[in-house]
Amino acid sequence: MGLKPLNDRVIVKRKDQEEKTSGGIYIPDSAKEKPQAGEVVAAGPECKTVKDGDAVLFAKYAGSEFSVDGDELIIMREDDILGVFA
């Protein structure tokens, strides 16, 4: 990927959506919600709390979605990240 975020921006790839519930019921596309978790693809030079490869939880309406080479990505401020999975 040839995109580098500036300042405190972070590029995140959203986690795959669940196809069925834990009980085995398949979820139709119209009822699916986009996951609020993902993996940091690239972090800007001023990011202090996250780094590339971190699994993160972010705010529901955070950032701007875009597509690069067929990958759906989100660019957001570091402040929109709510937590890092340990």
Rank of each mutant, 00 (worst) to 15 (best):
M1R: 11
M1I: 11
G2H: 07
L3Y: 07
K4A: 14
K4N: 09
K4R: 11
K4F: 14
P5T: 03
N7I: 00
N7S: 14
R9N: 14
R9E: 15
V10K: 01
I11P: 05
V12M: 07
V12I: 15
V12G: 01
K13N: 03
R14V: 12
K15A: 14
D16Q: 10
Q17R: 13
Q17T: 12
E18I: 12
E19D: 13
E19Q: 12
K20W: 05
T21H: 02
D29P: 08
D29E: 15
S30P: 00
S30V: 06
A31K: 11
A31V: 07
K34D: 14
P35I: 04
A37N: 11
A37F: 11
G38C: 05
G38F: 02
V40T: 03
A42Y: 08
A43C: 08
G44L: 05
E46M: 11
E46F: 13
C47N: 13
C47D: 10
V50Y: 12
K51M: 06
K51F: 03
D52I: 11
D52N: 15
G53I: 05
D54E: 02
D54N: 07
A55F: 08
V56A: 03
L57N: 05
L57M: 10
L57C: 03
A59L: 11
A59H: 10
K60R: 11
Y61H: 10
Y61V: 03
Y61Q: 10
G63A: 10
S64R: 09
S64L: 15
S64K: 15
E65T: 13
F66Y: 09
V68C: 07
V68H: 10
G70C: 01
G70A: 03
D71N: 14
D71A: 12
L73P: 01
I74N: 06
I74V: 15
I75R: 00
I75Y: 05
M76P: 02
M76I: 09
R77T: 13
R77F: 08
R77N: 15
D80E: 14
D80S: 13
I81V: 10
I81R: 01
I81H: 01
I81P: 01
L82I: 09
F85C: 02
F85A: 14
